[in-house]
């Protein structure tokens, strides 16, 4: 239960950690858009990989500054091999044309199938590393504040942004508590003879139900007590309240914003103008 490393905050006092969460969220979205662009001409496909390599280098630099360990990324990627396998099988089964090579003189493996698999895989890896940088350098609470800030305009159309943010932050606060509880209930049920590991599908479902029902009951009890505690301390969702945590924009944030925007502009230009680096360089040389 304790090996959930995806999206876990890793305390460290790096420059990336200190950046404004609003900026980090915005930059991550910019990077995501960059990854989803297509590059180069219709016939050549190496441009995609060149640009992805370029983005990967930048991500690696950010990871180095943020002191996010590569091993952590690999740990998360480990669970991805299954996805890659399925992707490969699907791509191999897709009807294709173009160059291919033969295995056992019967099975056609198209180059394009391998290319497509690699293409999707690289995009996945890049996106996972981006979200990992964001979540491991930003506390969940800061992220909530950032989301609340972006939602502020929607207050005009009566979206309860503050309540949404409060709900998210309480949910985040109770994840470890509920995980502990799950662990406790599993042990309690196991001591009463419930087997969570073995058995037929039906037996497993039964075992899971014996976990979920008490977990839900206790979660509802908790929520009632929590509501009482919040009310007793004067919480009133509609009323005006001051804030303890205030997001502060610093000069470092401006620099980071300019950097990510210019990178975005560059990549966008490369994509829209269909620039082919190989053609470009050979043109310059010749």
């Amino acid at each position: 239960m304790n090996n959930i490393s995806i999206g876990r905050y890793i305390p460290y006092n790096s420059k990336i950690h200190r950046l404004d969460p609003r900026l980090k969220l915005f930059s991550m979205i910019l990077f995501m858009v960059m990854i989803f662009l297509r590059f180069g001409g219709a016939q050549t496909n190496y441009m995609d990989f060149i640009v992805y390599g370029f983005i990967a280098v930048i991500i690696l630099i950010i990871m180095a500054i943020a002191h996010v360990k590569l091993s952590l990324l690999f740990k998360q990627l480990k669970s991805l091999w299954f996805v890659v396998l399925i992707l490969l099988i699907i791509n191999l089964l897709m009807p294709n044309d173009g160059p291919y090579f033969l295995i056992f003189n019967t099975l056609k493996i198209y180059h394009k199938a391998l290319y497509d698999t690699a293409y999707i895989f690289i995009r996945l890896v890049l996106m996972i590393s981006l979200t990992m940088i964001l979540t491991s350098t930003t506390t969940p609470l800061d992220l909530t504040y950032a989301i609340e800030w972006y939602l502020t305009p929607f207050k005009i159309i009566k979206v309860p942004t503050h309540e949404i943010a409060m709900t998210i932050s309480i949910a985040l606060r109770f994840i470890p508590t509920l995980l502990d509880e799950t662990d406790r209930i599993m042990k309690a049920q196991a001591s009463r003879g419930v087997d969570f590991q073995n058995g037929k599908f039906r037996e497993k479902v039964k075992a899971i139900i014996s976990l979920i029902v008490p977990l839900l009951v206790s979660a509802f009890q908790r929520s009632e007590e929590l509501a009482n505690a919040m009310e007793a301390r004067g919480y009133n969702p509609g009323a005006k309240r001051t804030r303890y945590r205030i997001l502060k924009w610093k000069w470092l944030d401006t620099i980071a914003l300019v950097l990510s925007l210019s990178l975005f502009a560059l990549i966008l230009y490369v994509s829209i103008a269909k620039i082919d680096i190989v053609v470009l360089i050979s043109g310059l040389l010749g």
């Binding site: 969940p140 609470l141 606060r173 508590t177 908790r222 007590e225 929590l226 009482n228 505690a229 301390r233």
Partner: peptide, 12 residues
């Protein structure tokens, strides 16, 4: 101050 320490801890 309530009984359950966990259920009255609101902040992160």
């Amino acid at each position: 101050v309530f009984q359950n320490p966990d259920n009255q801890f609101i902040g992160a």
